[in-house]
């Protein structure tokens, strides 16, 4: 009996060592590109192409980070990206909760067909609708504004958040709603008082997905934003990566601006990550 417990303890320790060492080695590999980005962002034009490469830049050139803001209104790009991300994320969260609640808790005709359509939108190639959308937004006078990037999100055009929310709501016991109905609550009160507080972690998942998606999107801003004053960070990165003929890009500036662009999302994820896994229910059986 004693032996068995000791044996179990030993195997648990062994397992621990295995997990830590494997995860440690893998994270070194995964972090390497980030490390290399940091290193490069601190180099000078002279040390950029030295061979063998310098692992740690010498001299360290911190002013690369200031140079990013010098000729290009990069601060403006950051502010724009924040604005777009903020409003479209709120839109995604609000609309996907409403829609998911409708799909998860109510019976109506064609519900399954409609939800099937929601899901199939996950597989719709963006290129199929981009031209007509462009023409439509032009007639709405939305070209070169943030509206094409924000307004559709208020109408739950993203299928994945709806799916995540619905699966989570399916996992919440229905008895809670029923008790509330008996207490005289209507559906909106149930959503507000019971469902939303219980699905906080799923909402955070939707927030992370939406922020990542908006923050990183390329094709939509590329097509709809034209004034330099309205550019996003991703477009700013493209601006900085442009080179004159025969020249190679200034990687140190590019890498500095790349880091500037990813830090906010990293912080967001890091601060929310503990809710993250809790918020995803695949089978609809959680809870």
């Amino acid at each position: 009996m004693k032996m068995n417990i000791r044996g179990k303890q030993a195997s648990k320790n062994l397992n621990k060592i295995f997990v830590y060492s494997t995860a440690g080695i893998l994270s070194i590999i995964f972090l390497f590109p980030i490390f290399w980005t940091v290193t490069t962002s601190l180099k000078t034009t002279g040390t950029l192409f030295t061979y063998p490469p310098q692992w740690f830049p010498h001299p360290v050139r911190l002013s690369n980070y200031l140079d990013v803001f010098k000729d290009v209104p990069f601060a403006r790009f950051i502010a724009n990206t924040f604005i777009i991300t903020f409003f479209s994320t709120i839109g995604t969260v609000v609309s996907s909760i409403l829609v998911a609640y409708g799909f998860a808790r109510f019976k109506f005709r064609f519900r399954n067909v409609l939800f099937g359509i929601v899901l199939s939108m996950m597989f719709l190639p963006a290129q199929i609708i981009i031209i007509p959308q462009f023409i439509m937004f032009y007639h709405l006078n939305w070209i070169d504004t943030f509206y094409p990037l924000i307004i559709p999100q208020w109408f739950a055009v993203q299928a994945f958040p709806i799916f995540i929310m619905r699966q989570f709501l399916m996992g919440l016991p229905k008895e809670l709603d029923e008790a509330a109905v008996i207490d005289g609550c209507n559906s909106f009160a149930i959503l507000r008082k019971i469902i939303i507080p219980l699905s906080r972690s799923a909402i955070l998942v939707v927030i992370i997905f939406s922020v990542t998606y908006t923050w990183n999107s390329l094709l939509q801003p590329l097509i709809y934003l034209q004034s330099i004053e309205k550019f996003t960070i991703v477009l700013g990165l493209k601006l900085l990566s442009l080179t004159m003929e025969g020249d190679s890009p200034q990687y140190q500036l590019l890498m500095a601006s790349t880091l500037i662009s990813i830090v906010p999302v990293f912080i967001l994820f890091f601060s929310l990550q503990k809710y993250f896994i809790r918020g995803i229910a695949i089978s609809g059986r959680k809870g």
């Binding site: 462009f134 023409i135 032009y138 590329l222 097509i223 034209q226 004034s227 550019f231 700013g236 601006l239």
Partner: peptide, 26 residues
Amino acid sequence: NLLWAAFAIDEYFEKIQLASVVGKGA
């Protein structure tokens, strides 16, 4: 209003062409 196609020369033409589809470029 300064519109900027910050990209390689080919991408610039892609962009003005797209704006012109609807009959209105810069």
